[in-house]
């Protein structure tokens, strides 16, 4: 089993998600990229768990999934609020928060 490939894979996936968070302007796509970053970390945890023959990594994946679920609920509630009050889902329009 080539574990280095799996580790490199998760790094690559994390960076792709990070690019999405940094570059995209649509709030929904930014949140999707955030979930994808967490998923890349899950892949790293599971492959490290198999590499070390311990279950701790898989237990941590459950924790990460819990946090991801809570984060998605909060963030999507924020998006709904944003759309109701401002009528848009573009991040650029949030500049009025600065003053």
């Amino acid at each position: 089993m080539n574990y280095q490939l799996l580790f490199v894979l998760s790094f690559v996936l994390f960076v792709v998600g990070m690019i999405g968070v940094a570059m995209r302007r649509n709030v929904i796509i930014v949140l999707v990229s955030l979930e994808l970053m967490l998923n890349a970390v899950n892949i790293l945890f599971v492959s490290a768990s198999k590499y070390l023959h311990t279950l701790d990594g898989q237990v941590f994946v459950i924790m990460v999934i819990t946090i991801a679920a809570a984060e998605a609920a909060i963030a999507l509630a924020l998006v709904v609020r944003l759309f109701r009050t401002m009528g848009m889902v573009k991040i650029d329009d949030l500049k009025r928060l600065k003053w």
């Binding site: 792709v16 690019i19 995209r24 649509n26 796509i29 999707v32 990229s33």
Partner: peptide, 18 residues
């Protein structure tokens, strides 16, 4: 997986991204 990630990040439509 890399292809699906790129498709999700670079999609023009949020539905396709999801």
């Amino acid at each position: 997986l890399v292809a699906a990630y790129l498709a999700a990040v670079l999609a023009g439509n949020p539905v396709y991204s999801a």
